[in-house]
Design a protein around this nucleic acid. Structure first.
Lengths: 206, 206, 206, 206
DNA sequence: GATGAATGAGAATTCATTCAT
DNA sequence: TATGAATGAATTCTCATTCAT
């Protein structure tokens, strides 16, 4: 069984409609983009009134910021867990990082798409906080590539550039993935892991 | 000297302000996104009046469509020229395709960014026409990978998936590239070519 | 004393500014026509902001539709009441119908004028609903004429055509009536009743 | 054969596109109303350019004025001809006047509809000139009714009021007439003549 | 927390009209 | 006479946000 319906990004936060609003915002921003979606769209999706939105979030921008924060937190957490459990060698660590990333895309594709497409509309502190989160994700991959380059497991030069390229390839997955596609979640993860290791010129890549 | 200021995508079309409007639209959509940019922004950028825009394009959507058409036409043309001149073997053909793509990104980064981020706001016929153009780009890479897989030059299985992944990596370049960056245009192209060939498991990849 | 200032068509609806907006719309459409009047005109007349109009009516068309619906509802109601109280014979029933119609014109001339001149700008469901209402008015007159033709009270052939002609004559009243005119409300009604009965070739017409 | 396609109101005026523009304006104003129709609509209908319209008519208002003048001129002329040929007695004169009016409606329904619905948008001199024409039409009917009332042919009191009512009934014809209707042009004229004479309480009314 | 009403700014688009050619 | 390009004002409608309840 391939299909796996995307699950709400945010679970109950113990604060009334907050989770419903965040999830509705994710859906609205995903469907129409930040500027294309209106607060009315979000309210409708959350099943509450327009003005009640402002009891939870002071502005549309902050709403977007919170949505993206939830998405990135979850991704970073999953990456760290996966890598920590992968032992000490670079290749298996990279393999697990890719797997975790792909699984996140499959579970929360919309969150990834919105995260990619709408960050640009953040400004000020919100933007900075997001950049930090982004960098944390990037750092996970960079560290592994650097480690592998040092140990000889990866023969690619310029670890940072290579890591960035691996991440670009992974980000692409969120753009084209369809839950009813040919590959299962596991197969997709396996495939991307192979691409990544090959790109990094790991002799272990099958 | 690395920096190479991005050049206007559209040259004089022989019809009054048309080129100025298209270029201003590209800039506006690039800076603020399709919904974030207003027709006033475009008019201001083109140095004409708001209402005059509508003597050239019947709607904001069609304006976006034309911008994207110009961008994709140019890219597809460049790809075909590059590949045609690259001889018969898959690896050099892929290398030239990647180089041409990267050069286009460097010359017209904004066009690539807008093309990637704003296609989703097209609808109806405009969208379909764009999809056709997109598929043409993808086909160039797929054909090369398939040829290389058949000849043994590339050992990666699933040529279509691999081609798509290469393109994702390339699309990423447009998102982070800065003209004042560390790598020259040529170095950047070279690097991406190496990543692509490695990813495709070409034994020739250094 | 003849003059009788036209009274607001719509009384308080229990929903904020709704009645004020409907009455302002009636006045604006009456003064400048549907396309000649702007939503700004309506807002100004209703003493509210332009955008607030859209909290009550989703579009200018729907606003027109509601205005016309109120007008026609009132007319049809008055006609039915008048006819029901007029006994069983066709001639007095026709006389009362005409009287009621004329009284409505005098009380709500603007509503009648707008109703006549602007229906054409309705479309879709709104138009259909209005046509139904219109037909109800026409049916009142047709039924009476048909009854009178059957009983011999009216000697005109083609009851439907004759009824339509009577209604045309009555509709004309709304176009030229001025409250400060020569005839009182009662005299005007009497006169029109005489014309109608004569047209229908009733021997009772004096 | 009933159907009789409405014929262009204005024939060649010996001045380039003038007739085409006037007829296109009639059609546009008829279809969408004065304010609902744009000069672009008129230009399209006339097969010429927007700006060329202004070589013939200095403004939209004047264009409307000219259209209405042509329509009313033709109607008044037809009425005078018909009445002059009808002998000296009031009843046959009225009959011929009604016939001529109905024939005009059938031949140029659109002109009548526009004439009725859009006069209100004229202002200043244009309006005054139209009112004069209107009054000429009304005078034709009033004179006949007055003559008949004096001679005893019509027993209705208040000749001016009665004449106005007859005209209202006739104006109604333009609003509902359809060329593919049940009645032929002749039958329609006959029927309306009967209604008019009956309304006027002429003993000769059959 | 929750709501409905309210608002000013701004959106895309259309308009009648002008002008240089 | 004819045109295409241009424009400023106005159009309908939507927006994010506020506020009294």
């Amino acid at each position: 069984m391939n299909a796996r319906s995307t699950v709400s990004l945010v679970g109950d936060t113990g604060r009334g409609n907050e989770a419903a609003i965040l999830n509705a915002a994710l859906e609205a921003f995903g469907a129409k983009g930040f500027h294309g979606a209106s607060m009315r769209d979000v309210a409708r999706g959350a099943g509450t009134s327009l003005s009640n939105l402002y009891n939870y979030f002071p502005s549309k921008s902050r709403l977007l910021a919170e949505v993206l924060r939830h998405a990135n937190d979850e991704l970073v957490t999953r990456l760290h867990v996966a890598v920590d459990e992968a032992g000490d060698d670079a290749a298996p660590r990279m393999r697990e990082a890719v797997r975790a990333y792909v699984r996140f895309v499959v579970d929360h594709q919309l969150a990834m798409v919105v995260s990619t497409n709408e960050v640009r509309y953040l400004a000020g502190e919100d933007r900075e906080r997001l950049v930090v989160d982004r960098d944390a994700t990037q750092a996970v991959f960079e560290d592994i590539v650097a480690q592998g380059a040092a140990s000889g497991e990866f023969r690619t030069p310029h670890p940072a550039d290579a890591a960035r390229t691996v991440l670009s390839a992974l980000a692409g997955v969120a753009q084209w993935y369809r839950p009813d596609g040919r590959l299962s979640r596991g197969q997709l993860a396996e495939q991307q892991a192979r691409y990544a290791l090959a790109l990094l010129e790991s002799p272990l890549a099958r």
